[in-house]
Write a protein that binds this DNA or RNA. Sequence first.
DNA 1: CGTGAGATCATC
DNA 2: ATGATCTCACGA
Length: 197
Amino acid sequence: MIEKAFFNRPTLKVAQDLLGKVIIRNNIKAMIVEVESYIGPIDKGCHAYNFNKTKRNKVMFERYGIAYIYLIYGMYNCLNFVTEEINMPCAILIRSVEILEGKDIASNNRYNLNYDQLSKKQIKNLSNGPGKLCIALNLTRKQNKLSLISKDLYIEDIGYTNFEIVKTKRVNIDYAKEAIDFPWRFYIKDHSCVSIK
DNA sequence: CGTGAGATCATC
DNA sequence: ATGATCTCACGA
């Protein structure tokens, strides 16, 4: 298990170090393939821009090492990892994972089918997006504020480092003014599970 | 393969 | 009114 101090480092560093690590959840192992960083104090794309604290985003103001999960577009959840100290609202959005183990559990969460019953398209769409991976991993707002070193949700290092990191703009934050262009989205180069190239 | 509309609701 | 998204139908 990765210790909590892992998250007590600069958000952009933590985000890149998360690539290739594995989320353990309900007997599912899911490798992190794509992330985005959100840095409240200076980031107009972030819910907590300019330290703006609301009922929804207050978890971001807590200490590093917990999950921030919120509802988006009325029907989907997004999983974030909170970084930095208390009252420094920063987080990392998990955008895509590859299911390594527990494929039947994940595919049942998502499609009510076993993995070997999935179509090619369903396999591709199993967990390659922030909303999709939350369904596959059975994460909802009930897990908001959950510790990232709990038995129900934690991270492991499986020693996978043999990849290049692509750094690019974040997705779907057209309203974020100058922050639109911040290169704070990171993904594993050439990985088939990346949501958008 | 790509495109576009509709779903659906907490938040501001 | 809007969104850190996804699905489906449609056309190529």
